[in-house]
Design a protein around this nucleic acid. Structure first.
Lengths: 182, 182
DNA sequence: CACAAGTGTTTACTTTACTGAACATTTTGA
DNA sequence: TCAAAATGTTCAGTAAAGTAAACACTTGTG
């Protein structure tokens, strides 16, 4: 844990071309502390880490979300988007097999009458989508709406939510959400 | 600062229906510490805060990015998605006027020959998309590919990237990305 | 009512985060 | 070539984080 923090801090600091002493003077933190944090020999307080990061500058949020890695593949052919069907609902996820992604982009298709049960187990993150064709009845919290082609939705996944196709033609849409687990 | 952390922790804990002691037993942290953190009287170490958050469970990333607020609107009619055109490229963003969102879902249209310059100023986050119609030539890092209907892409925005429509019909796609700024 | 089990808070005490000043090396420049 | 001024690391002292055990209070149950 502290090894991770230290390594990441060192990477950010050196990438910025700063020495431990420079960063220390800049932030009012002892250079010894920065050295020990980077070596994983110190268990920094949040306020301490924040002071140091302010000098880089990087937010705590950015620091812990840590998106510095490179993706190994960028392009996916249509037939690679394996379809997952469940009842009258089918999904095709872009980049489903990527090991570390923060967006789930789905092409979804709801057959007439199909839908999801109410998601009682709400998850973190956010969801949004845009209707390509057909009609979809969406309930979020205590609000319900029937969306048609070109309409869209956006909500925090912590809201209980459900989808249902009330029409008599399939409903196609594209949805994007942040992953359920952090 | 510690007031903020404390308040946020208390909000998350109580929303979860946990008492300080329950959370303490669950995580192996003294309930007194949780009490003091919530009161802003303690300056927790990162590892300490992480142990506590693991019991909720919330990641450090989610904790500091703070996506617990409720969206005020969930549904958007097609004509509300105001179009932004720039050269031969047009965008329609879902939930563009939401004050705090972590996904940018765009319906994009590239006219024949249109494209973006190479994005030299790379930003944080990730981008992905799915081609609805037409063809789009995408360059990411040192890789280039021409995608057609149903094809998709996914990459970290820190990679230099550019888009261009090499065909003679408009190219429509849906893209999703995490916001450029933290 | 009384008592048991829960809640969050406060208080000594132990552990440790954090500092300032040393250290050993490497780089810069006259 | 030899200071001079960087670099990162180690170390003793101190300020504070974190704990265990009390506290005062509320809630439910026989």
């Amino acid at each position: 844990m502290n090894q991770d923090i230290g390594g990441r801090l060192r990477e950010l600091r050196t990438r910025r071309g700063l020495s431990q002493r420079q960063l220390g003077r800049l932030t009012g933190v002892a250079n010894a502390s920065i050295s020990q944090i980077e070596a994983g020999k110190l268990n920094p307080t949040v306020s301490m880490l924040k002071k140091v990061l302010d000098g880089i500058p990087v937010s705590l949020s950015a620091f812990f979300s840590g998106d510095t890695e490179q993706a190994e593949r960028f392009f996916f052919r249509a037939d690679e988007l394996t379809e997952i069907a469940d009842g009258g609902v089918s999904f095709r996820q872009v980049g489903a097999n990527l090991k570390d992604h923060s967006i789930q982009l789905l092409r979804e298709c709801y057959q007439p009458g199909a839908g999801t049960g109410r998601h009682a187990i709400t998850h973190q993150g956010e969801e949004c989508g845009l209707i390509l064709s057909g009609r979809l009845k969406i309930t979020v919290g205590d609000q319900t709406s029937v969306l048609g082609e070109g309409d869209a939705y956006y909500f925090k996944s912590s809201q209980p939510h459900s989808f249902h196709n009330p029409g008599n033609v399939p409903c196609e849409l594209i949805s994007a959400c942040t992953p359920p687990t952090f």
